[in-house]
Structures are given as structure tokens and as C-alpha cells.
């Protein structure tokens, strides 16, 4: 992302959309103190990830660069930055909003899609496996927990909700297996 910035890249509507998130509009008050990015545990390990830079890009309306950056998915949502910002910028909420817009634009990482597919199928992001069933038995617990794993009516309800929201299509495998 070291390319020079072109004003033709600025998309006012994108900025407005990000600013719909409460506290995201405070980005306009950012005075670049670097409090957010300097304490970020992810930036410490991966300098291409920089919450301060991303939010300033959002403020400029740099939609394409942001949505297509693989790094917007690196944030662990630890909220350290948001708690520290002296200007009350809701940094994490703003970044999550940018992710939402990315998803609306059909951009989602394959591993995230896969987790989504597990929820569509099992109602759990981490479904049970044989190893855990054994452990449950040893502990004197029922082999299958009393969740949607055991109650099929419950799973049917969850599947119905997911269908209504269209989430199943959102995380569906694309043709060609992307």
C-alpha cells in the first residue's frame, strides 16, 4: 500500500457508510497521536496491519484499497485501541463496519466462509468430534451435549433463521471452488 494516493480513489459514499456506525464518525477528530496503533498487539507482529492508517483511509473514502486489503481481517477485536483513543473514536466498531461493507461487496476470506458453513450445517462454529465424545464419556457427561447437536428441533429452528437472513447463500461455496 505504498502507492501514491489519487483523489479519484476517494469515495464519499463509502466514508458516509462507515460513519453510520456510532462513533466511527469521530475519525474526523483523529489528530494522529498514534495511541491506537502503537499499542496494538497485532501491529507489533505485522506492521502492514495498522488501525490508525485504515481509519484515516476510511475518512478519505479509500474504498477499494481498504476492502481489498487482506489486513482488515487481522484485528483480534481486543479493543485496546478503542479504550485508549483520547478522541473517542470507536476504532474497532468502525473496522467491523468496514468488514461488513466488504462482505456486502462479496469479499470474504475462504477460512471465514468455511466457519460460516459449519454454522449453517451444524449450528456450531466448532462442531463435536469423536475425540471429544470420548472425553465427555470419561468425564461422566452425556456423549453429545444438550445443544443443537442433540435437539434436532433446535437445529431446524437455527437453519430456518439462517435461511431467512440469507446467510447460507452468503457463505456458500462459489462455482469453481474459490
Amino acid at each position: 500500500m505504498s502507492d501514491s494516493i489519487k483523489t479519484s480513489d476517494f469515495d464519499q459514499a463509502f466514508r458516509d457508510e462507515v460513519f453510520e456506525e456510532p462513533g466511527a464518525d469521530k475519525i474526523a477528530l483523529c489528530f494522529n497521536c498514534t495511541g491506537c496503533s502503537s499499542g496494538c498487539p497485532m501491529t507489533e507482529q505485522e506492521s502492514e496491519f495498522n488501525i490508525r492508517k485504515f481509519l484515516r483511509m476510511a475518512n478519505l473514502g479509500m474504498k477499494e484499497q481498504l476492502l481489498n486489503s487482506p489486513y482488515i481481517w487481522y484485528c483480534t477485536t481486543c479493543y485496546k485501541c478503542q479504550e485508549r483513543c483520547p478522541q473517542g473514536v470507536q476504532n474497532v466498531d468502525a473496522l467491523l463496519k468496514i468488514r461488513t461493507i466488504a462482505v456486502e461487496n462479496g469479499i470474504m476470506l475462504v477460512p471465514h466462509k468455511k466457519v460460516g458453513q459449519l454454522v449453517v450445517k451444524f449450528g456450531h462454529a466448532v462442531p463435536i468430534n469423536d475425540d471429544t465424545k470420548e472425553k465427555r464419556k470419561k468425564l461422566g457427561l452425556d456423549e453429545v451435549p444438550p445443544t443443537v447437536h442433540r435437539f434436532e428441533e433446535g437445529l431446524d429452528e437455527v437453519k430456518k433463521l439462517i435461511k431467512i437472513a440469507g446467510f447460507d447463500e452468503m457463505v456458500a461455496e462459489e462455482e469453481g471452488g474459490k
Binding site: V119, V148, F151
Partner: peptide
């Protein structure tokens, strides 16, 4: 027991993917 409970669903992923699905579940 909360019989038939599902994934909460996981906030980091699902909340930013689709608020409707997250809230409904």
C-alpha cells in the same frame, strides 16, 4: 440445561458478516 442452544454466534466473525443472522441466532 439450555436445551437446543446453538453457537452464540461467534461475535468476531458473524457480527461483522451479517448483523441480522447474528442477532437472530
Amino acid at each position: 440445561d439450555l436445551e437446543g442452544a446453538s453457537c452464540c454466534p461467534a461475535p468476531g466473525v458473524f457480527r461483522s458478516f451479517d448483523k441480522t443472522t447474528w442477532l437472530a441466532m
